[in-house]
Design a protein around this nucleic acid. Structure first.
Lengths: 120, 120
DNA sequence: TCTACATTTGAGCAATTGTGCAAATGTTCT
DNA sequence: AGAACATTTGCACAATTGCTCAAATGTAGA
């Protein structure tokens, strides 16, 4: 048994065995990895980040966000769907408008830490 | 003057003017947005996330990481370059091996908050 | 120097992504 | 019902991404 396709085992393998086993053990399940990856991937796009930074201040509707970012309403709507699907923003409907806001405090916290990280 | 190409102004514009102006004002510069976006983008990939979670435990060399993730050494090296370029990991050379580790505490913090966010 | 092994690099390719356009859907008002 | 506007959706296409393969580079020891 042992190796999946593509895996190469280097010759220091024996020396590093302990570290490798411990790391493999503590690694989150693939399912969790994919969720976290989807989450960060959603934040890893300039348009979506602008949307989120704008929403730090106040709830905003699709066309406000189009105006703020300088992108088409359609482009914003496409991106909002991604943020909505991944539970990063939520919304309320009010007549013809749909107002979006950040879903929870973790988002605020992560955006803040990331900004701090950039300053160094 | 006023609108870049693609911008549409919705008819509630006047009502929302205050919010829009305030949001535009507080929005970070494009340069900063791009940096933050690059940062999150680097975290938004299953392979790179696995690398980072593995490095939470201990420093590891390229071939250890290949072994842990089940991907080719080449694939890992390509991804490590991205993480290195974006100051998310750093490294030390030791003979034929190159040992990678997380660059600073912000990375740990962000990974931790993200994991917590997933649990809800 | 030659050999072995760890790592990096560049090319190439399939798969994914971000956007605009045009059409569809929702909502309010007359 | 019909008009006006906000939003969403599907399609198409250029641009980007992640991987493999093969070759190049780096390092240590015989």
């Amino acid at each position: 048994m042992s190796n999946e396709k593509g895996t190469e085992v280097c010759k220091v393998y024996e020396e590093h065995l302990d570290k490798i086993l411990k790391a493999k053990e503590k690694l989150p399940d693939d399912e969790v990895i994919l969720e976290v990856s989807d989450f960060f991937d959603a934040l890893g796009n300039p348009t979506r980040l602008k949307i989120l930074f704008a929403l730090l201040e106040d709830e905003l509707c699709t066309c406000d966000l189009s105006n703020i970012t300088g992108l088409s309403v359609s482009a914003i709507s496409h991106q909002l769907r991604i943020l909505k699907d991944r539970k990063i923003v939520t919304y309320r409907k009010d007549g013809k408008n749909v107002f979006y806001r950040l879903d929870d405090e973790h988002i605020r916290e992560i955006l803040k830490v990331a900004l701090k990280h950039m300053e160094e």
